[in-house]
Design a protein around this nucleic acid. Sequence first.
DNA 1: GGATATGTGGACACCATGTCCACTTGGATG
DNA 2: CATCCAAGTGGACATGGTGTCCACATATCC
Lengths: 211, 211
Amino acid sequence: MENGAGHPEGLLLDAPSVGAPAGRRPRADAARNRAQILAAARRLFAEKDPRAVTMGDIARAAGVGRATLYRRFPDTASVAVALLDEHERELQGAMMTGPPPLGPGAPPDERLAAFYAAMVDLLDRHLPLLLGAETGERRYTTGAYAFWRAHLRVLLREAGAHDPEALVEPLLAPLAPESFAHQRDRAGLPPARIAAALAWSARRLLGGQVR
Amino acid sequence: MENGAGHPEGLLLDAPSVGAPAGRRPRADAARNRAQILAAARRLFAEKDPRAVTMGDIARAAGVGRATLYRRFPDTASVAVALLDEHERELQGAMMTGPPPLGPGAPPDERLAAFYAAMVDLLDRHLPLLLGAETGERRYTTGAYAFWRAHLRVLLREAGAHDPEALVEPLLAPLAPESFAHQRDRAGLPPARIAAALAWSARRLLGGQVR
DNA sequence: GGATATGTGGACACCATGTCCACTTGGATG
DNA sequence: CATCCAAGTGGACATGGTGTCCACATATCC
């Protein structure tokens, strides 16, 4: 951990996945149901508009009652968050302790570009889940988002940007699932081109010299 | 109109406001009701969470039946769009024919900064309406959005950016109402600071020289 | 094997949506 | 001024999702 300036450590999601009470070992049937719920939800989110999936849909597809579902997840977004958890944790690990340029050691503009590339990849592979998870302002209150924000703040400061605090949001905004969905699916831009454009702007914004 | 390369003219909203049939002069009571609906809606959007305003709310506050409301507006977002119409048209005019740097004549980085400033101002003054109007993917299908996009595309091309088509979205994303709402209301950043950060990035991205 | 906390699923009340239809009213026409 | 009809109106309705409650079942502990 070579970043003395306070790397965002405690912000990594360390809670044992949403919907899985930490108290003691869960009952066998409860665990089985939880697995069924997640499997069914993953299927549903993929096959129809993720924002149109209802609690009833998930319960029916999982073969459980609605109240059973409500016991663990307050809404469909929470289910999607639980499904994303693993993937986001992985990325967070790579950002904190993985090899450069995603991990520490590379100049900030290259790290930003690598972060963009990794996020585009995440978006490309799990877009339905991300759309299901980040409806409206929920995006800003999730644990993962706080982590991305802290990461960018560090990079911005390192690069001597004008006002790191105010620049974090604008740099993160292009990664909003809705925005990515629009670019890839409606405008037809291939993810690689999106990532390239973001890399270009990362270098312009944080690079020491132009060109 | 000194921009030979095809300035986005036809994209200006020229339809006579949403919900106002163009056919012939509307009946007196219909016009009165329409005015009441818009006035009531403006009030409602301002005083509670704009995304929680329902068609029933608007109808009740306007003193008309729900079906009367549905006759003109298919949903609450359309009402918000009608209320925004005038303001957005104004801004579009200033961008196309107004004085620089917002209007034509200034270098692209300055025009982008001015555009950001104008949009932040619009967001600051009409955030509730914008939040009510741009729920989910609707943001991308509105006429105004197509206009902003076309404008940026011109600026990006003029500045010789790497891939204008793919850069448009990332540059527009920070202006998403949800993003602005988060910065101003949850993070507590004053609009001026948001605008300054955007201006800084505009110059870094499209400016000829750093600093 | 019995006690108990935990998990389960159907039922219920509530609210918003979008449509339908019988009634009313503005305003053009003779 | 009386008449007519198309446009406008508002209440009622069916539908579907949400979140909660409660009687019952079933794992786990003793």
